[in-house]
Design a protein around this nucleic acid. Structure first.
Length: 439
RNA sequence: GGGGAGAUUCCCGAGUGGUCAAAGGGGGCAGACUGUAAAUCUGUUGGCUCAGCCUUCGAAGGUUCAAAUCCUUCUCUCCCCA
């Protein structure tokens, strides 16, 4: 865990060593606000600028809070979702949520946690991305426009006057101090452009704007945002003399220390075109035992008691993994897709289930009539990226056609192997399946 | 502006005229073991009409029987000095 230092005086009230266990509540010091308690027990809280103060503020009434996200890609992925899950918890507890689209900041690129400069993307692309992000978020959060709504920082950033900005905002930032932030330190090695260096000012300005316009007093986000969040809080204090809070969530890693949500194809995207609901389901179905409980707490809304029961020592984790996969898939893609994915998984791995829910490829029947070369078949079924890969698969005994291992890479698959419905299940290794339908 | 270093196959990183489709590691894939887990072990990892052929070592030219390796120009990156 990185140790921020030189972060301000009154703000430095954070859990020692970043551990959640140290947060005072059961110690009797204070009774933590119920919403915060929920976040804590589900593993969301990484750092907070002033947990006690935030708790009191939340007890006193609805707190308006925001989370920002830069639309730099075509789809949200699961890594983006941790703050949105937290947002849902806080919103359910009666607090007011603002989903901030970084339509302005995306033009710059946040250097935090990045090892290289971000690609500059066109304004049109950013707007298109923002629209897609919002669609996905709305599906998950169901923005009501009142207690949960979105803003776009393009509104106040796009036409900012440089001189005014320097005068009013820039003067509050110490370069010396900024350079001491871990996010910039890392980039001192590899190179950091001036516009990226400005990112923190812009994000701080966002917070200030939301504070003034919307009465927003809390910013939440991933722990890589800590420095930017703290800077915003200080800006609010300096400019407005106001008090605001920051709360960060852990950057979720898998038990073996990898970034969570990585698949062969890249990230685990919410867009069903980029990551099919079946693949999405399978990701969760295959999480490591060591991650199971953590993921159930963070990525589902199952009651804590139920999670505890599912993960009780000695319990076979497979039922819990299936529950996890179904729950998350239903939250993201809807119950109908979750049902389908579950049925497809059952068909592929167990007995029964619904074959038609498996990943399916349609191929011309005539190809089988004339004998479908296996290598081509595996490639076209999407189970191998090239014929060489398909050949290797066969040579290594990982290719299964119908019920039997296929040994001869030169042979062809004839129509006689299709079942009564004209279907054939292919398998590559133990986990990749394709149902071929001959038409 | 001056000086120096570098760009290698998915990533890191060897290679400095033929024995190089290119060491080693990571990652991926497959097999064994299992629980659709982890760990471990083994194999494999550019493409194809696969005992052969074709395309790769920042880009474009050139030298040579032969270049990732030598020369020229270009693009980009990093470091030092100003």
């Amino acid at each position: 865990m990185r140790i921020p230092h030189g972060i301000g005086y009154t703000l430095a009230r954070r859990p020692p060593s970043g551990g959640v266990g140290e947060i005072p509540n059961q110690s009797g010091a204070i009774d933590m606000n119920a919403a915060l308690e929920t976040l804590k027990e589900r593993g969301f809280i990484q750092q907070c600028t002033d947990l006690e103060g935030l708790s009191k503020a939340m007890d006193a009434g609805p707190v308006t809070f925001y989370e920002g996200c830069d639309p730099t890609g075509p789809s949200l992925h699961i890594g983006h979702m941790v703050p949105y899950f937290a947002m849902r918890h806080l919103h359910e507890a009666g607090h007011v949520a603002i989903v901030l689209m970084g339509g302005g900041t995306a033009r710059i690129g946040d250097p935090s946690g990045k090892s290289s400069m971000r690609q500059i993307i066109s304004y049109e692309e950013i707007d298109a991305n923002a629209a897609r992000f919002l669609g996905q978020i709305d599906k998950f959060l169901k923005l009501d426009g009142k207690t949960m709504y979105s803003e776009n920082n393009k509104t106040w950033l796009a036409d900012l006057n440089y001189i005014d900005f320097l005068r009013d905002i820039g003067r509050h930032f110490s370069v010396n101090r900024m350079l001491s932030f871990e996010a910039y330190k890392q980039r001192m090695e590899t190179g950091l452009s001036f516009i990226e260096f400005n990112y923190q000012l812009l994000q701080s300005y966002d917070f200030l704007q939301l504070y003034k316009r919307n009465g927003c007093t809390l910013q939440i986000g991933g722990d890589d945002q800590w420095g930017n969040i703290v800077a915003g809080i200080e800006l609010i204090r300096r400019v407005e003399g106001g008090e605001a809070f920051g709360l960060t969530f852990p950057l979720v890693m898998t038990a073996d220390g990898k970034k969570m949500g990585k698949t062969e194809k890249g990230a685990l995207f919410l867009d069903p075109e980029m990551t099919t609901p079946y693949e999405f389901f399978q990701y969760w179905r295959n999480v490591q035992d060591a991650d199971l409980e953590k993921f159930l707490k963070m990525f589902t809304f199952l009651p804590m008691a139920e999670i505890a029961a599912l993960c009780a020592p000695g319990t076979n984790p497979n039922a819990a993994k299936e529950r996890l996969a179904y729950a998350v898939t239903a939250l993201i893609h809807g119950a109908a897709e979750a049902d389908k994915a579950l049925a497809g998984a059952k068909a592929a791995f167990g007995s029964g289930g619904d074959k038609s829910a498996m990943p399916t490829v349609e191929l011309a029947r005539s190809r089988f009539d004339s004998g479908f070369p296996v290598l081509d078949l595996f490639v076209e079924a999407g189970l191998a990226p090239s014929k060489s890969e398909a050949r290797r698969l066969i040579q290594q005994g990982g290719a299964v056609v119908g019920d039997s291992v296929w040994k001869d890479e030169k042979a062809a698959v004839g129509a006689d192997l299709l079942d009564a419905e004209g279907e054939l299940v292919l398998r590559a290794g133990k986990k990749r399946f394709a149902r071929v339908v001959a038409k």
